[in-house]
Amino acid sequence: MTHAEEPARRGVLNWLLGLWGGGVLASIVYPVARYLAPPDIPEAAALSTNAGSAQALAPNSGRVVPFGARPAIVIRTPAGELRAFSATCTHLDCTVQYRPDLQRIWCACHNGEYDLNGRNVAGPPPRPLDPYDANVTGDEIVITRRA
């Protein structure tokens, strides 16, 4: 190797070092930048979730909505009051529904019935449904888990 080649080789080495170093930096900066950009869903639905329009929920009817990884049921009593419960039946984890004819929350799997306060009143369910808070902001029903 001649002395003339040495600085040229070092130049290539530095250039390569810069290139790869830039690549390494980019693979750090890219995830961080993506992380910093606000995600599509801005926050965890840990404590509350939107359960749709309050107007659209007529008295003596109910609606099942996802709340985290589990379903919740929001009902409007015949008297017009909004109430929300966990929609997972306490018997065998089926999803309950509102039965306007019975005016009760009803589980189709084994005919379990809960009253409008979520209490297990007929059939096999061993426990009442977990109650949630239901509030209205604007026209949106917001279900909140009780801390």
């Binding site: 961080v32 992380y35 965890a44 404590l47």
Partner: peptide, 24 residues
């Protein structure tokens, strides 16, 4: 979020919803 009601859910949110949150 540092509270008993939200801490777990917020970490879950970080690792499942935030891009590259799992990595961080």
């Amino acid at each position: 979020r540092p509270s008993a009601t939200e801490a777990y859910e917020s970490v879950q949110f970080i690792v499942s919803r935030v891009p590259f949150g799992w990595l961080v």
